[in-house]
Design a protein around this nucleic acid. Structure first.
Lengths: 249, 249
DNA sequence: GCCGGCTTAAACGTATACAATGAAGCCCAA
DNA sequence: TTGGGCTTCATTGTATACGTTTAAGCCGGC
C-alpha cells in the first residue's frame, strides 16, 4: 500500500454533492447503474489507481445512498475483476498480476482477432463513420495530452468493434477484457506511451471497410502484440516478497 | 410462465433443513459460496428449469440465512446469465433466447478450439488420467440414465480442459459458457439426446495426449457443431407475441 | 353479465442497527 | 528505550424493519 490515494474529488464526475434524496425512491436501479458507471469510468480512466481503497462508508456518503447499494455495486465490479474484495478488509481497485496481464492479452488476441471476420462481413457505412469518429476523438485527446479521455476512447473503440460482430456474448467478454486492460496499462504501462499507436485504429477500419476480414484479423493481432510489448511486465516484487528466495541465496 | 415449478425439495441437496444457526457468525463467506454452488448446480443439472421463479424469502428460509445474503448470490448468478433479475418481479432461472443460444455456441467454437493448442502442449499424464476419469463417469451416468449427473460432468469436462490451457481468464469465460450451455440444452435440447456423443470426449483426449493440438481443435469444432446441431433452435413463440405480425397478415 | 376501479396482500428495494473482526495506538514492564 | 500485550476504534458482515410497488381478488356500476 504505497499510495495513499483515497477517493479524490476528481474521481466523481456526478455534480450532486451527496444530495440526500432520502425517503424518496425516485429512480432506484437507474441511479445505481449511474453510480456503477461513474466508479467504473474512474477506474478505467486511471483517476482511481490500482491499489486505491474503496471504503463503503465513503462511497455511500459521496453518492448519497446507503452502504447496501454500494456493496451491490462493489460486488459487481469485483466479478468483473475491476476491484478486489478482501474478506474483512474491504474493496480496493484491483492491481493485476503479471500473469493476469498475460492471460488477458492472450485472451484478447484469440477473441478479438476471431471476431474480425464477422465484423468485416456485417459492417455498414454508418458503423464505419462511427468508428472513425471514435478514432478521431481518440487521436485528438491523445494530442491534447488528455490521457484519461484517450484511454477510455481506445477501450470504447475495441468494444464498439466487438459489438459489430453481432455476438453479444463475445462483445460482453471483450468489453470486460478491455476494462481490465486499462487497469493493466495503469500498472505496467510506461508514462507517455499509451500503447495504442495513433493510427492503428484507422488502418484497422480501412481493412474492415474494404471487407478484408483476414487482413483485419492479422492487423489486430499485431496491434495487440504491440500494446503488450509496450508494457513492462517484469514480475516486480510480489505483494508478499519471497523472503526464502531472497535470503537463502 | 407455463410451468409452476417453485423450488422443489429435490433442488436442495444440502442436508440441513433450514437450520437457523442465527446469531452465530460461523463460516460466513464460505457458507454463501456453498449456497451459491448449490443453487448453481441445481440450475446446471436441470433440477431448476428455465423460467422457475426464485423468491428471495423462500431461498432465505430454505438455506437459513437472511435475504441479504440471498440477494448477493442472486446478483452473482444474474451476472453469469444463469438467472434473470426483473426489476420489481424478482429472480427466475434464465430462459435463453435463440439468439443467445447461437451466440454462446459461436463463442465456444471460437474460444474452446482456440485453447486446444496450449492444452495439448502443457498437458501432463496426471491431467490425462483425470480427464479420462471424468469422461468415464460421464459415460457411466449416461448409461445409467442419470441425466443430471451426466450434464454436470460434461460441463466439468470442458471446464477442466480449459483450465489446462493455463489461462485463468479464458478458463473462467469457458466455464460461464458451459453453464449457459446447460441452460440452453434444457430449453432447446431434445429429450434422450444429451448432445454430447458418448465417446467424443475420449477421442478428444486421445488427440491431446498425442500432442496433436491441431487435430484436437478440429475435433472440438466438430464436437461443438454436433451439439449445436442436436438442438431445436427454432425461434418458437416469443414471450410477447408479436400481435402486429400475427394479425396484419 | 361483464368490465373497471379499489382494496389487500405479497414480494422486492433500501436503509439502518447491531455484531464481529482486525488494526492501530497506548501503556506497562523489563 | 523497546517490545509485547491490552484496549479502543474503525470498518465490514449480517439481519431486520419499513417503504414501495405490483398483482390478484373483490365489489360495484353500467
Amino acid at each position: 500500500m504505497t499510495e495513499h490515494q483515497q477517493l479524490p474529488d476528481s474521481a466523481v464526475t456526478d455534480s450532486e454533492p451527496a444530495k440526500p434524496r432520502r425517503g424518496k425512491n425516485g429512480d432506484g436501479a437507474e441511479r445505481h447503474d449511474a453510480i456503477y458507471r461513474t466508479i467504473s469510468d474512474a477506474i478505467i480512466e486511471h483517476r482511481l489507481r490500482p491499489g486505491a481503497r474503496l471504503r463503503e462508508d465513503a462511497l455511500a456518503e459521496v453518492f448519497g445512498v446507503s452502504r447496501t447499494g454500494i456493496r451491490k455495486i462493489l460486488q459487481r465490479l469485483a466479478l468483473e475483476h475491476l476491484v478486489t474484495l478482501t474478506p474483512r478488509r474491504g474493496a480496493s481497485v484491483t492491481r493485476p498480476s503479471a500473469e493476469e496481464a498475460r492471460d488477458v492479452f492472450a485472451a484478447r488476441q484469440l477473441v478479438e482477432c476471431g471476431v474480425m471476420d464477422s465484423v468485416a462481413r456485417s459492417m455498414t457505412a454508418a458503423d464505419v463513420s462511427e468508428l472513425r469518429d471514435i478514432a478521431l476523438r481518440e487521436r485528438t485527446a491523445l494530442r491534447a495530452g488528455e490521457q484519461s479521455t484517450a484511454i477510455k476512447l481506445s477501450a470504447e473503440f475495441h468494444v464498439r468493434l466487438a459489438q459489430l460482430s453481432g455476438n453479444a456474448t463475445l462483445a460482453e467478454f471483450i468489453g470486460r477484457l478491455c476494462s481490465r486492460s486499462s487497469l493493466i496499462l495503469a500498472v505496467y504501462g510506461n508514462p507517455g506511451n499509451l500503447g495504442c499507436e495513433s493510427h492503428d485504429h484507422d488502418e484497422l477500419i480501412d481493412c474492415l471497410e474494404a471487407g478484408k476480414g483476414e487482413r483485419a484479423s492479422a492487423f489486430m493481432g499485431r496491434h495487440l502484440k504491440a500494446i503488450e510489448a509496450s508494457l513492462s511486465i517484469d514480475v516486480e516484487e510480489e505483494e508478499t516478497p519471497d523472503l526464502h528466495r531472497i535470503f537463502s541465496l
